[in-house]
């Protein structure tokens, strides 16, 4: 690892001053950044430790404020274990607990989880071509080992996936991200936070380099009784998703009033299944309808050989997740 300058700003404003300089990287939990630095994938001149900033809190819905706010520095384990989160958004708690390991969840923050890079092997190996790591070198995975890779929204530049579980749940829960920049605050809808690779796979998301995630805001909902996060992976725990599905239903007398679906392990960003959600509204909560919804969700999916099995696994996982959410399993 290259030697770097370590700074520890005391205020958000100070942090914004520092991160606006090129070569700076924010560190929070460090679970991905330190890993990337060890592999030489990133070699910042300056590490900006933001752990002392007041961005940890989890707020409750109070009065007519029907949202929960989670600070960017809240630990993954704190959020997953928070009793109000478990009660209001069991989907988020399940997704968080499906990710990484207890130790890593004790280090990783909500903001850091959002900012984590892909786990594509070509991205990690600095001797391999990778447009995300080094634009213009090509995509190693496209014609290579791409079992873990994207079936939705990929470009000819990049077929990497975003590895987060938490983000899949947050996308399904219609969260909003509050970010701070030198010009002040702005809000990004969670589904728009991460981006597709397009011609610029080196850019993972729509956070500007001189901006900082402050918190994530989740509107309360009626999904808590019928939510499920199903993650299919090569072992039972501590592995990235082949495919994961966040499913949330509001069911009244067996009829679906509202549905939210998002997938992980299939795209460069958490993949919302808007069409399938719409289809489910007004339908009976049955396996047959779930399978139909899953079919709709697969429109536009493209396999690249090694990952073509996902074209079958993804709809199967959607159906399974919905069955769990609806209590049919």
């Amino acid at each position: 690892m290259k030697q770097f300058q370590y700074v520890r700003p005391a205020t958000i404003q100070a942090a914004l001053d520092v991160i606006s300089k090129p070569g700076s990287k924010i560190i929070a939990g460090g679970t991905n950044l330190v890993d990337l630095m060890k592999r030489g994938v990133t070699a910042p001149d300056k590490i900006v430790d933001i752990n002392h900033l007041p961005l940890k809190g989890i707020s409750e819905p109070i009065g007519n404020v029907m949202t929960v706010s989670i600070g960017a520095l809240a630990l993954n384990s704190e959020v997953a274990e928070n009793s109000r989160i478990k009660e209001l958004f069991p989907l988020l708690s399940m997704a968080l607990n499906a990710g990484a390991s207890p130790q890593l969840r004790n280090m990783a923050t909500v903001g850091g989880n959002m900012m984590q890079r892909t786990r594509c092997g070509y991205f990690y190996d600095t001797t391999m071509p990778c447009n995300k790591r080094q634009p213009g070198t090509g995509c190693g995975a496209m014609e290579g080992v791409n079992r873990m890779h994207a079936i939705f929204g990929a470009s000819d530049q990049c077929i990497a996936v975003h590895p987060s579980d938490m983000c899949v749940a947050l996308a399904a829960l219609d969260a909003t991200v509050e970010v701070a920049g030198k010009k002040g605050k702005r809000y990004i809808h969670f589904a728009d936070f991460h981006r597709l690779p397009g011609e610029k796979p080196q850019i993972d998301n729509n956070l500007a380099p001189d901006e900082l995630i402050v918190r994530v805001i989740i509107p309360t909902n009626n999904f808590s009784r019928n939510s499920y996060y199903l993650k299919i992976r090569d072992r039972q725990s501590y592995a990235f998703a082949l495919v994961s599905v966040a499913a949330a239903l509001e069911i009244d007398n067996g009829i679906i009033k509202n549905a939210r679906l998002a997938m992980g392990g299939v795209a460069h960003k958490p993949w919302r299944l808007f069409e399938a959600e719409q289809f489910l509204v007004g339908k009976t909560a049955s396996e047959e309808n779930f399978a139909k919804a899953a079919g709709l969700a697969m429109k536009g999916a493209v396999g690249h050989g090694g990952n073509s099995f996902k074209l079958k696994l993804a709809p199967a996982t959607i159906t399974e997740a919905l069955k769990h959410a609806a209590g049919l399993v």
């Binding site: 030697q3 770097f4 300058q5 370590y6 700074v7 520890r8 700003p9 005391a10 404003q13 100070a14």
Partner: peptide, 8 residues
């Protein structure tokens, strides 16, 4: 405002 610096 920053502290604990390794100078460039």
């Amino acid at each position: 405002t920053a502290v604990a610096v390794t100078p460039v």
